[in-house]
Design a protein around this nucleic acid. Structure first.
Length: 473
RNA sequence: GCCCCCGUCGUCUAGCCUGGCCUAGGACGCCGGCCUUUCACGCCGGAAACGCGGGUUCAAAUCCCGCCGGGGGUGCCA
């Protein structure tokens, strides 16, 4: 096998979808694993639906995921190239102009449906006399260009994942390669580009299987070598239908904004339809994945996307994989957006070093870190009632004294103080921790109070406790 | 309707090619316990699957056939 070259060819009509992202990842991994090249090609031949903003976001999201390409193309800049090949097909009798209007075609389709027979273009314009074609063109009648598909021919190709696939040309019939506005369509440009760019392996979703025989016909008509095809099983939603907006957040962007680590998303997506040769491990860096990824380990059945597992994996990355400083850099924008003062980076870092075990996403982090960042805490009625215990005042007062004498700087020191209070006042641990928790956070659950007290500035601790004491008095 | 693809715990999967090592392994989630100042984290344990029916064979999750189920395609979208 010569040098491998794969591509990812999204159309800029929306955000980068998880399914497409996984296709991009597999395509990228396969190229890198074999030491080959990877191409990014924007498929924007449909001028109606393509938008530059989406292209920009697609690129941004791919970069965020850690995917890098060696070559970049935009199909809208290659129309003259496609024209050359359309002319070639026309000249050699592999294609012909079709003057049927969308309305006429619609009628044909409806009739076929009524009769219960599979629809195929009738071939009405297939054998028009050259004079007739000239006449219609001169009249300014709009036309498309269709590829002439041989009748009743079985196209067989070897898919690297699915195995041998055979489809009869009678199942589709003559298809359009140039729209009436003069722009070429997907099935045509994809062949010209893949051939010209030297793509050796066409890696894409299995929803493209029905397109493959059409494309093979074009490769042959144009005299191009046919590449290898790799059709990946699709990603499904919880209800086992193709993953779509109906299933909630399905764009890479959405997970990015939720506070997911790109490394975790990349890793998780790999496990959807692929499994590592070595059993028992699931956390892999991109470099390791490049090393071990092989198409032979790709599963051939569709996989259901599972948010819970992604979330778990993101937690693993946050608490075990991502270096603290990187985590801090990524956390700050989230905290800032929530309105917190993030000017003291060292403080944020200190907080995260103690708390990163307790959240799975950066959104959850914002909630979790609240007591470390707010100025004052609100204590709700139901929570306040827990403070109405005879010993609470004594506990808080004694604690305040100890803090004033010597502010503990580590959770261990805090626990030591708590033990002393337990001993002095003869109370059980919860009777010390619970009042402190409520006074300092206003909540009944959350991060370890020993951590909060060790990290929070002395003034804030005193302020919060005094406030409770005053109200209690 | 027609064409194509797929079918192991709820979910992702290992095993299937080269039948026996499978009383079917791992992970998420779930349940129980431990740790413990709470929620988490961590640790320990548990429930949980070969879609169905025929064959082939001494032996089938693994091979063959049929059925059923799911998905995709059927565009002047990609």
């Amino acid at each position: 096998m010569g040098k491998v070259k794969t591509r990812f060819a999204p159309s800029p009509t929306g955000y980068l979808h998880l399914g497409n992202a996984r296709t991009a990842i597999f395509s990228y991994l396969f190229a890198r694993h074999t030491g080959g090249d990877f191409v990014l090609r924007i498929e924007d031949t449909d001028r109606e639906r393509s938008r530059k903003e989406y292209e920009d976001m697609l690129i941004e999201d791919l970069k965020w995921l850690g995917i890098e390409w060696d070559e970049f193309y935009r199909q809208s800049e290659r129309f003259n190239i496609y024209k050359e090949y359309v002319d070639k097909l026309l000249a050699e009798g592999h294609a012909y102009p079709c003057f049927c209007s969308p309305e006429e075609l619609e009628k044909e389709k409806e009739e076929a449906k009524k009769k219960g027979i599979p629809y195929r273009y009738s071939g009405k314009c297939r054998n028009l006399y050259p004079e007739k074609i000239e006449k219609l063109k001169n009249e300014g009648k709009p036309f498309t260009i269709r590829f002439k598909v041989p009748e009743n021919k079985v196209i067989v190709f070897e898919d690297l994942i699915k195995g041998s696939i055979a489809i009869n040309t009678d199942d589709f019939g003559d298809f359009i390669i140039v729209r009436s506005d003069g722009t070429p369509t997907y099935n045509f440009v994809v062949v010209v580009d893949d051939a010209l760019m030297g793509i050796t392996h066409v890696v894409r979703g299995e929803d493209h299987i029905p397109n493959t025989p059409k494309q093979i016909l074009i490769y042959e008509a144009l005299g191009f070598p046919v590449p290898k095809f790799v059709h990946l099983p699709v990603i499904l939603g919880e209800d086992r239908s193709k993953l779509s907006k109906r299933h909630g957040a399905v764009s890479v962007r959405a997970y990015r904004e939720e506070g997911y680590m790109p490394e975790a998303l990349f890793n998780y997506l790999c496990l959807l339809g692929w499994s590592p040769p070595e059993e028992g491990r699931e956390i892999f860096s991109k470099e390791e994945l490049i090393e071990i990824f092989d198409l032979k380990d790709v599963n051939n059945s569709p996989a259901v996307f599972n948010r819970e597992k992604l979330k778990w994996m993101n937690g693993v990355y946050i608490r075990e994989v991502i270096p603290l400083d990187v985590l801090v850099d990524r956390a700050i924008p989230f905290l800032k957006k929530a309105g917190y003062d993030v000017s003291d980076r060292d403080y944020i870092k200190k907080v995260l070093s103690h708390t990163k075990d307790s959240f799975d996403t950066l959104s959850e982090m914002v909630e979790r870190l609240k007591p470390f960042l707010v100025d004052e805490v609100q204590i709700e009625e139901e929570v306040w009632s827990f403070l109405e215990d005879s010993k609470v005042q004594e506990v808080l007062t004694l604690f305040l004294q100890k803090i004033e004498e010597n502010k503990p700087e580590s959770p261990e020191e805090v626990r030591k103080i708590a033990k002393e209070i337990q001993k002095t006042l003869k109370v059980k641990p919860p009777n010390v921790w619970k009042p402190l928790r409520i006074a300092l956070t206003g909540e009944l659950e959350g991060v370890g109070i020993d951590i909060l007290i060790a990290v929070l500035p002395k003034e804030k601790i005193e302020k919060r406790i005094k406030k409770v004491l005053e109200k209690l008095a």
